[in-house]
Write a protein that binds this DNA or RNA. Structure first.
Lengths: 339, 339
DNA sequence: TTGTATGCGTTATCAA
DNA sequence: TTGATAACGCATACAA
């Protein structure tokens, strides 16, 4: 059964393809009678416009491109779910590609997306991407919205989590539990979210007049379980005193828990631990990990909404805004001593 | 800077667009001189054929559609990674959509993919999909390869994990550790993998002459942590004796661990536990969970390869084959007592 | 209200 | 070896 096209419907009703096209696209200059007749057979024959013909003609593809660093990062997957949901709702297809954390890959992938005639682009940029010229340039060709991993001051719409507030809440919670020597396991220096989470940490210390101890601020290039474990191991080896750990990701926090447990340091009695992102693992590990929950699916949905806005209001004065989504602190055993 | 098109290059060299097209597409009937000249400026001006024009003309889109039940299932994400990798390698775009575990959704999504003019379709079917007529029908229009969640005897290429062998290995391992009363927490009856994993369980019992005890074969519609926990709780309540648990997924196995721990039953001393899929959680939970590792990325890559094969050898006598990938048992603390 | 004609950018056929 | 031309299916400006 071949696909129905305009000409098939036109022949049936003895009209021209342009009339059929107009009827289907809801133009006003078609009589009610022919319109309903056409729409009826169009439905009956499951007519769907050929996307290539339509795309060629209209320069639109009803497709958005999504570039994420790594689908295996569960937060990436959660955002993607929101994107898929919302895109489907708005009638957009989703073309997906990974940048795999390599700058060159991101650049190439970006170009391929543009070559694919997508109507707009959703990008979570690479931590390597200090240079974002390629993104700026892309945004001159088509609407681009950044999410999750964004860049400093790029003139684009950004959807992110309020990292600083999330970190502040977490650290404040630790302080209110009586903790004063709080370790912060940070990530790479040039990462937007790492930087802002560190700021939240510092803000909380400041608010409660707790002196900053640089020995407690650890930097870990890779924010993995093993790196988190290593970071705390080192601290223990140096016999640095601390009574809490704020991990910039759940993984480093879990690594911290492992290190503490290996050294028989009880959690949360001796040391409280908090992570960031509230992944599945948070409720698997014992003790369950207190963590800052990020609204990933909402982020994805919002990103699509803003992108489609830009697609529909084209050359329009782009008013790049940065949307910050609020986080929620999920308090669990790793930070809550009922003492 | 507008996109370069054939006519631009043609004008530069004072030739026709058809010559340029031929040169770029490597046809033989172009003189070496003009060819190299054309290719050079084509490269310089970053010429890329407009996909809509090309698609309209050739009826090909260099795009494959991927339908998965749920991107949040980490195994789905792992397979997807393999698909993305491989597709990129072969120069294919990936259009992604979720079926979200609803039959109607799958049908609709499938139709949308076909309407999107993808060259082929990769589908992990829905557990609800007892009725697969829509998939059969789709496969008459375009190449379709099924992966992970497949259907009984559908005349299509299927890429799956050797569930039976994986389960057999797991249960054999338990038996070799001296376990004789092995619980099996199964999934829905109509699920292909659930059924085959149960077969592997039965096969192992049979091989080692262990009588089948139907009280130990539990069915859980949802293979979640809480359902796994509930299943074991019930068993304990009934005071049924058992010394091992084979969970059909990591989640039910983790649920089992939770139930056992709440009842102060030591793992693996009193009861050994094994899961299936070797998710991240397996090494987070304490004791670390022994689990059957499935080669997800390989599955994705293979699926792409077979699909592209079918795309390239069209109406060709389709020789549907079922590829079974071997699993690897990752032995960890939850099943290994050094006694 | 309807139809005709044209072009979107590419490729393939056929003639030069 | 090259080019003119038609066609892929659709949407639109304009004519009827």
């Amino acid at each position: 059964m071949k696909k129905t096209k305009l000409i098939d419907i036109a022949k049936i009703h003895g009209v021209s393809t342009s009339t059929v096209s107009k009827a289907i696209n809801g133009h006003s200059d078609v009589s009610a009678a022919t319109r309903t007749a056409i729409l009826e057979t169009s439905k009956k024959l499951h007519y769907v416009a050929n996307i290539h013909a339509k795309g060629l003609r209209t320069q639109k593809s009803s497709t958005i491109g999504v570039i994420i660093p790594n689908i295996l990062l569960s937060f990436n997957a959660t955002i993607l779910k929101g994107i898929l949901d919302s895109a489907k709702e708005f009638g957009y297809r989703v073309l997906l590609s990974e940048s795999e954390h390599y700058f060159e890959n991101e650049k190439e992938t970006l170009q391929k997306m543009i070559d694919s005639n997508v109507d707009g682009l959703l990008i979570s940029i690479n931590k390597e991407s200090k240079n974002i010229d390629h993104i700026i340039k892309a945004s001159e060709h088509l609407p681009v919205v950044l999410f999750d991993k964004i860049s400093e001051k790029v003139p684009l719409t950004n959807i992110i989590v309020d990292d600083q507030q999330g970190a502040f809440n977490a650290v404040e919670h630790l302080i209110l539990q009586g903790r004063k020597e709080i370790v912060c396991i940070c990530g790479a220096k040039n990462s937007y979210s790492s930087e802002h989470r560190l700021n939240g940490y510092l803000e909380a210390l400041e608010k409660y007049k707790i002196p900053i101890n640089s020995e407690l601020i650890l930097e870990s290039e890779q924010v993995t379980i093993s790196q988190g474990e290593l970071a705390i191991q080192r601290l223990l080896y140096k016999a640095t005193k601390f009574d809490a750990v704020f991990g910039i990701t759940d993984n480093v926090a879990i690594g911290a828990i492992k290190a503490l447990q290996k050294n028989k340091i009880s959690i949360p009695e001796k040391v409280s631990v908090i992570g960031f992102s509230d992944s599945d693992k948070a409720t698997i590990i014992v003790p369950n990990l207190t963590s800052v929950a990020q609204p990933g699916a909402s982020m994805g949905r919002l990103a699509v909404r803003y992108l489609i806005d830009e697609i529909n209001n084209p050359i329009n004065v782009r008013t790049p805004k940065t949307i910050e989504l609020k986080t929620v602190l999920k308090i669990r055993e790793s930070s809550f001593s009922s003492i």
